[in-house]
Design a protein around this nucleic acid. Structure first.
Lengths: 67, 67
DNA sequence: TTGTCATGTAAAGCGTCCTTCACAAACTGA
DNA sequence: TCAGTTTGTGAAGGACGCTTTACATGACAA
């Protein structure tokens, strides 16, 4: 499942560690989500979307949208 | 994390098995999500929201909204 | 009463999510 | 060059997501 995390983070000039701190997860979790190694849990997806003030659908790309 | 799955399902007159079939998951998974035993994965949350033609935020209630 | 459907739950198993610790490579700045 | 930052990745461990199989309950119809 694709996402726009790296771009959203870059727009703000944050390192993966900066973002991890704001989300209260490890840097490796942020990296794993950005590099597509796994998807976040639903609660973490909510925290991410809220941090960027976006609906979840504008941060994460639905698998069905990808086809 | 709370959700409106039971109500949305009831509005349509679907059993848990009916919903499970449409989502391509087990009946037990639907039951576990409805009874709050665990949250769905993010991809499954997308499928659920799309099935009901709602944004994810209108199916699942953000933990931060609950307080 | 008997059968069927809907729901709730338990156990075991597998893969995923997230952690900490650790190491390596690329880049930046002095 | 040298130190510090950033990113990518691996291994091991704990908790969660989802499965199949199975059993128990309550509602409803025959």
């Amino acid at each position: 499942m694709n996402n726009h995390l790296r771009g959203l983070r870059a727009e703000r000039g944050w390192s993966q560690q900066d973002l991890a701190d704001r989300l209260e997860v490890s840097r490796q979790s942020v990296n794993a989500i950005e590099t597509g190694r796994y998807d976040p849990s639903l609660p973490l997806a909510f925290r991410i979307a809220e941090l960027f003030s976006l609906p979840i659908e504008q941060v994460f790309v639905s698998p069905s949208a990808t086809g």
